[in-house]
Design a protein around this nucleic acid. Structure first.
Length: 295
RNA sequence: GGCGUCGUCGCCAAGUGGCAAGGCAAGGGUCUGCAAAACCCUCAUCGCGGGUUCGAUUCCCGCCGACGCCU
C-alpha cells in the first residue's frame, strides 16, 4: 500500500495540497483530525466542502455525533480500516493532519488497543485526583511503575490518571510499539506571519460561512460543554457571543488566538518526527515534493 | 507661560533604598484511549542626564515626553 502523509499546523494548506495531489493521482484522503470526526461541526472545524468530498473520497470525517466521546484508540481502528480499504482498491492514501497523536496512532504503530481501559477505574481515579490531588496519584504510580512515573508530570492530572489507570489494570504502563506504516511524510512549515494571517482570515470566513448558526444548532441540542467535541476551537466563544456576553469581534479575536496557540503546539508535535521532510509552501509548491517517486 | 499627576517587558499593571509581582501576548517543550485536550518552561534592570547614599527603579535637581487643570 502507498501512503503519503501531509502534516502541518492549521491553515497551512494541507487539505488543499492533499486535494490537488489526490485528484491528480486518483487517490483518497484520510483525515487525521480529532474534531472533523464529529457530524454537524463542519464550519467550525474547517472540514472539506461537499464539493471537495465529491471530487476526492475522504475518510475519517463525520464518524460520530458530537454527543459521543471519540478518542485516539477509535481513530486508530477507523484509520487503519480506511487505509486497508483504500489499499484494497489499489489507490494511494493521503493522510492529512492535524492532530499529532492521531497521526502517530495511525502511522507509528502505537499499541493503543493493547492498553486496557476501564471507565469505572478511571472515574474513580479522577475523583481521587480532585480530592487528593494529582501528586497523590503520582506517588501511587511511582510505587507500581517507577519508570513510567518519571515520564509524566505529577501536576498533569489527566495524564497521571491515565497512567495510573494503565498501571492498575495491567500492572505497569505498557510502552511497546509495533512496526508502523511506511509513508512518505511531508510537513508544511510556512512563515509564522503568513500563517497567522491565514488563521485570522479563516476565522473571519467561518463567521461569514455560518459558524454562528452552526453553533446555535449545537447549543440547542443541549450538549454537555465538557464533551470533547465542544472543545473545538471557537465554539465556546461563538456560544458566548450568542448569549450576548461578548461582541463578535472579541469572539473572533479569541478564537484566532486559540488557533494560533494550537498551531504552535502542533508544530512541537511534528518537529520531532525525523521522517518528515519540511517545505515552506510559500517558497515552493509542495506538490513537487509529493510527486517525486516514492522510496 | 504656570500648577499638578504620570513615565516600569509588545500591551495591561504591582512594587520597594539593597540586584522589579502578576496577567495578556510571544517563544520553546512534554505527549501511547478526553489531544483543537491536559501540563511544563522561558521572557524587563524600571524615559534621559546629574546628585545624595555603602547602595536608587524607588530620594533630590534638571531635561524630554504624556495627560489634566489654570492664565
Amino acid at each position: 500500500m502507498t501512503v503519503i502523509a501531509i502534516v502541518g499546523p492549521t491553515a497551512s494548506g494541507k487539505s488543499a495540497l492533499a486535494l490537488r495531489a489526490a485528484a491528480r493521482s486518483g487517490g483518497e484522503i484520510v483525515s487525521a483530525d480529532s474534531r472533523q470526526v464529529y457530524r454537524g461541526m463542519d464550519i467550525g472545524t474547517a472540514k472539506p466542502t461537499a464539493a471537495e468530498r465529491r471530487r476526492v473520497p475522504h475518510h475519517c470525517i463525520d464518524l460520530v455525533d458530537p454527543s459521543e466521546a471519540y478518542d485516539a484508540a477509535r481513530y486508530q481502528r477507523d484509520g487503519r480500516a480506511a487505509l486497508a480499504d483504500i489499499a484494497s482498491r489499489g489507490k494511494i492514501a493521503y493522510v492529512v493532519g492535524g492532530t499529532g497523536l492521531y497521526v502517530r496512532a495511525l502511522l507509528d504503530g502505537l499499541l493503543l488497543d493493547a492498553a486496557p481501559t476501564d471507565p469505572e477505574v478511571r472515574a474513580g481515579l479522577e475523583r481521587r485526583a480532585e480530592t487528593e490531588g494529582a501528586a497523590a496519584l503520582h506517588r501511587d504510580l511511582a510505587r507500581i511503575d517507577p519508570a513510567a512515573a518519571e515520564r509524566v508530570d505529577p501536576r498533569n492530572a489527566r495524564r497521571v490518571v491515565r497512567y495510573l489507570e494503565l498501571a492498575t489494570l495491567a500492572g505497569r504502563v505498557p510502552q511497546q510499539r509495533e512496526v508502523g506504516v511506511a509513508a512518505r511524510r511531508v510537513g508544511l512549515d510556512p512563515p509564522r506571519a503568513w500563517l497567522d494571517e491565514r488563521i485570522g482570515a479563516r476565522v473571519r470566513q467561518m463567521v461569514d460561512g455560518g459558524v454562528l448558526e452552526e453553533t446555535w444548532r449545537l447549543v440547542e441540542t443541549g450538549l454537555d460543554p465538557r464533551l470533547p467535541s465542544m472543545s473545538g476551537h471557537g465554539y465556546v466563544h461563538w456560544a458566548a457571543h450568542l448569549r450576548g456576553e461578548v461582541g463578535l469581534d472579541a469572539a473572533i479575536a479569541a478564537t484566532a488566538k486559540d488557533v494560533r496557540a494550537y498551531s504552535r503546539r502542533q508544530m512541537t508535535w511534528f518537529r520531532r518526527d525525523p521522517e518528515i521532510r519540511w517545505v515552506d509552501p510559500t517558497a515552493i509548491d509542495p506538490l513537487t515534493l509529493l510527486e517525486e517517486v516514492p522510496a
